[in-house]
């Protein structure tokens, strides 16, 4: 297909906010979209020439992006009401006018930029790592992992902390303690690792506490929006069984 053949103009309606505590407002922009354009490429065009539909010259729209390949997770936002990465949202496949809003559940920094620090705090809370003695070579290999276990684990290791699942989850909120689906899936991943498993009890205790697994209402929103198709609710189900067993162990003390 020839690039020139399908140029089109498209309207973006963007929810803007100048500062963290300022009031949000909407602005519309009409841009030319070339074949293959996506939401990030249009926002890049807008930086160069930021004039609203009404001809008013305004400050460029702040937004985040880095890889433009849907692997860094930076560019997630609400696009026509759905949380998704903007770089892989092709204009040709979106209904116009296209509504862009910052990712909900996270504090707005400015315009489409949000602060996802909370998600990383939650990763600390659930100890989402394999504890090693040190990052030096100890001349020992890690234990073997069957191709079947690998295939299951690999699904979870692709979480890019974009926050889409958190945005979609009815139980995640700025005033709620729930750690949310992405960090829970990392618990599933770490608990399955042959040595990561050594800290399983601690991780399970972390998610059995307030804001943990029991806050999940099983609404399944998370798994529907994850751009990496991470089986979040499968992880949550597995963790349900793990925590039940752990609770019994805690009760009878036979660890």
């Amino acid at each position: 297909m020839h690039a020139e053949a399908n140029r089109q103009t498209v309207e973006l309606r963007i929810r803007r906010q100048d500062r963290p505590n300022a009031a949000p407002y909407w602005q519309s922009f009409v841009l030319e979209a070339r074949a293959g354009a996506n939401v990030v490429s249009l926002l890049m065009d807008l930086r160069e020439h930021c004039v609203t539909k009404d001809g008013e010259r305004v400050d460029p729209v702040a937004f985040e992006h880095n890889c433009m390949e849907e692997v860094c997770g930076a560019c997630a936002m609400l696009i026509n009401g759905l949380p998704r990465p903007a770089c892989s949202a092709l204009i040709a496949e979106l209904e116009a006018p296209i509504r862009l809003e910052p990712l909900p559940k996270f504090p707005v920094v400015r315009d489409l930029m949000v602060d996802r620090a909370r998600m990383f705090e939650h990763l600390k809370q659930v100890k989402a790592w394999v504890r090693i003695d040190g990052a030096w070579d100890n001349h020992e290999r890690a234990p073997r992992i069957s191709p079947q276990d690998w295939a299951a684990n690999y699904l979870y290791s692709r979480c890019m902390s974009c926050g889409c699942c958190m945005a979609a989850c009815p139980q995640v909120g700025s005033d709620q303690a729930f750690v949310g689906p992405a960090p829970l899936a990392q618990v599933r991943l770490m608990n399955a690792h042959p040595t990561g498993r050594y800290d399983k009890t601690e991780r399970l205790h972390a998610i059995m506490a307030e804001g943990g697994l029991s806050d999940c209402g099983n609404a399944q929103n998370c798994v529907r929006v994850c751009p990496k198709a991470i089986p979040l609710t499968t992880a949550i189900g597995e963790l349900g069984r793990q925590t039940t067993l752990q609770a019994l162990k805690d009760l009878f003390g036979n660890d």
Partner: peptide, 17 residues
């Protein structure tokens, strides 16, 4: 080997290596 100990999900042979 160190990356592997950190839990990096390297692809495996049928023997798990």
């Amino acid at each position: 080997r160190t990356f592997e100990r950190m839990g990096v999900t390297f692809s495996r042979t049928p023997e798990g290596l």
